[in-house]
Design a protein around this nucleic acid. Structure first.
Lengths: 335, 335
DNA sequence: CTGTTAGCGCTTTCAT
DNA sequence: ATGAAAGCGCTAACAG
C-alpha cells in the first residue's frame, strides 16, 4: 500500500532473467540485446516499475543533485538566477535543491552541512552578507564536492566563481551621469566589508577621478543592512543643495529612500539624474525614468550551473578553476 | 579524497564494539549504556563521522524530505509561503525541496514524478493554472505519500488543503468600496476555470447584490494570463465615464494596468477607490493609497506544512482530511 | 550478451 | 546492554 514495491527482482523473476541484466536494460546499457531489452521494458511498464533512486544513489555514490544556497529567493535577481540554474541542471539530468540563508551565516552553515550529509554532488552558493569565515565551504569541498560561487565575490583562491564586473558597471554608471553633466553625484553604498559594495564604490571613485571631479566623502552614504538607512539617505539628500546626480549601488536602501520620498509627496527633481543597480521591477515602477544597470541574472545561473556540472563530471582532475566575470548593460529609459 | 569515508564500521573496529551498537548509540537509542554511548560519540567526533543519509534512507524507506511545488518562487506571496514551510519543516527535522512549475502542467507533472522517484515523504503543492487533470497527484498519493494543497483550491475530495476564503475576502473588499460610496465598481478578474478567480468573482457579485447595486457584465474584466490584459483593462477604464471604484482580484493585470497608466502620465483620480488582492510590495509603491487585502502567506506555509507532517507521521490511519480555510484582512492605507 | 557475486552503509530483528 | 546476521534495491566487477 505505502510504497511502490516493484523492484528489478520482481521483473527478474517474472522473466527468468537475472536482475543484473534487468538493471542494465533499464539503464539502456548497450550490453543487452534489443530483444531482451524490449521484453524487460515492457514488463517493467506492466508492473509499474519505478527505480528506487535511493538504492541507486547509495550504490553509485552520486545523487545527481545540485545544492543551491541563496540569500533569499524573494529577491528578483536571485529568483532569475535560480531559474537559469534549474534550466541548465534539468537539461543535464540533475535535480536541484534550494536553501535560503536569509543573510545569516549560521543558517548558511546549517544548509551547507545538510547538503553535505545529503550528498549533493556539488554546490552553487551566493554567500550571505555575514559570511567572512569559509570553513564550512572548505569542508564541503574536501568532503563533499565542487563549489561554484555566483554573484557575490569571495576572497578565496582556487574556487570557481561567476561574478559581475561590479567595478566596471559602477564606473560606467557614474560615467553616464558625468556625461549627462552631473558634477555632484551622491553614491548610495553598503558595508565595505562586503566586496561587492567595495568594488562598486571603487568604480564610482575611479570614474570621478578620471573626469577630474573631486571625490567628496560626504557624498558617499554607507548603508548597514536595515531599510532605515534608505530613509536617512533621503533626508540627507533633501538637505544638500548642489546634488545633481545619484548613483545607487544598493537596492534596498535606494528603494526605501524612494518610498520615503514618495510618501512625503516629494518627487526627485527632473534635473537630478539617477542610476540604480537594480534588476527589480519595483524600481522601474517607482522611477520610470531611472537608468538601471542590468545584470545578466538568468545567464549567470546557466553559466554557474554549467561550470559546476563540468567540475562534477570531470572529477578531481585538478583542472584549473575557471572563474568568469560577466558584464552588465546600462539600460537608459527614455521619459 | 572524494568522500568522507568514515562509517559506523570504522568506529566499530576502532572501539571493538559491534556496528549495530554504534548505530544505536549514534541514534541515541535508550538501549545503549551511557558509558559506551559517550565512548562512541567521542570516537565519532574524532574520526569526523557523518552519517550516510542515503544508506539510512534506503534502509528506513523514509527521506525526511518534503517536496514543494510552487508556480513560481519570484512571486512574493509564494516566497513567503515557502519561508513558512521551511521554518516548520526544519523545526520538525524535515528538509524541503522546491520545484517551480511556471504555471505549466507538463512541468508540474515532471516535478511530481521526480519527487516521487526521489521518495519525498510528502508533497505540498499549489497547482499550476493549467492543471485541470489530477492523475499525477492521485498517482503520487497512491505510490508516494500524503499531499497537502495550499492556496489554490482544487475540485477534489479526500485531500487536505489550506486555502484562503476568497469569496469572503472579495465580498469584504467590494463591500468596503460600496461603503465608501462607490456605485460603479469595475472588477479585474481572471479565467473562470480557475476556482480562485471564480470564487473571487462570486464574492464581488454577492456584495453588489446584497447592496442592491446592479451587476454589469461590462464592468467585469476577465484576464487571460498575459500582462497585456492589464493594458487592455487600463484602456477600457479610461473610456468609461462613471467608474468610481476598482476591485482587482488579479495582481498581474492590475500591476501592468497601473504601470501602463503611470507610463502615460495618468494618475488614477482620487475619487476612484481601489482595492487590490495583493501581498506584493510593488502595489503599495505604485499606489500608496491602495487598500489591500492581506493574505496570511507565511502562516499558510506553516499550517500546510504542519498538516502534511501530521499526515506523514500518523501513517495511513485513515484519519479524516482536515482542510482549513484561512481568513484575510483588509489593510486600509491612509493618504 | 548474460549470469554470478559482492557490497554501498545503515537499521533492525533476534539472540545472548 | 550488546552482538550476529540479514537485507533495503541497486550496480559493477568479473566470468563465462
Amino acid at each position: 500500500m505505502k510504497s511502490n514495491k516493484t523492484t528489478i527482482h520482481d521483473i527478474s523473476k517474472a522473466l527468468n532473467i537475472d536482475s543484473s541484466t534487468v538493471s542494465r536494460a533499464l539503464n539502456d546499457s548497450p550490453r543487452v540485446s534489443k530483444k531482451t531489452k524490449d521484453l524487460i521494458l515492457k514488463k517493467a511498464q506492466e508492473l509499474g516499475y519505478q527505480k528506487n533512486i535511493l538504492a541507486s544513489n547509495l550504490r553509485t555514490q552520486k545523487t545527481n543533485t545540485i545544492g543551491i544556497v541563496v540569500p533569499r529567493i524573494s529577491r528578483n535577481f536571485f529568483s532569475s538566477v535560480i531559474s537559469g540554474i534549474e534550466e541548465t541542471a534539468y537539461k543535464a539530468g540533475y535535480n536541484v535543491v534550494i536553501g535560503q540563508s536569509f543573510e545569516s551565516l549560521e543558517r548558511e552553515q546549517k544548509l551547507v552541512s545538510t547538503f553535505l550529509s545529503n550528498r549533493v554532488d556539488g554546490l552553487l552558493i551566493s554567500i550571505s552578507m555575514e559570511t567572512t569565515d569559509f570553513n564550512h565551504l572548505e569542508n564541503f569541498k574536501t568532503h563533499g564536492g565542487p563549489i561554484v560561487f555566483y554573484d557575490r565575490p569571495v576572497p578565496l583562491n582556487n574556487y570557481t566563481s561567476i561574478t559581475i564586473n561590479d567595478f566596471e558597471a559602477s564606473y560606467n554608471a557614474t560615467k553616464h551621469l558625468i556625461e549627462k553633466g552631473c558634477k555632484h553625484i551622491v553614491h548610495f553604498s553598503g558595508i565595505q566589508k562586503i566586496l561587492l559594495y567595495k568594488n562598486r564604490k571603487e568604480g564610482y571613485i575611479a570614474a570621478l577621478k578620471k573626469h577630474n571631479i573631486p571625490v567628496r566623502e560626504d557624498y558617499i552614504f554607507e548603508a548597514k543592512l536595515s531599510e532605515n538607512d534608505g530613509v536617512e539617505f533621503a533626508k540627507k539628500i533633501l538637505q544638500m543643495d548642489q546634488i545633481d546626480g545619484i548613483y545607487s549601488s544598493n537596492d534596498t536602501s535606494a528603494i526605501s529612500a524612494m518610498q520615503y520620498l514618495k510618501a512625503k509627496g516629494i518627487r526627485i527633481p527632473q534635473d537630478i539624474s539617477v542610476v540604480g543597480f537594480n534588476n527589480d521591477p519595483i524600481s522601474a515602477v517607482i522611477e520610470p525614468n531611472l537608468t538601471t544597470i542590468n545584470q545578466p541574472d538568468f545567464e549567470m545561473g546557466t553559466i554557474a550551473c554549467q561550470q559546476l556540472i563540468d567540475l562534477i563530471e570531470q572529477g578531481n582532475n585538478h583542472k584549473e578553476q575557471q572563474s568568469k566575470v560577466l558584464q552588465t548593460e546600462l539600460i537608459i529609459r527614455k521619459s
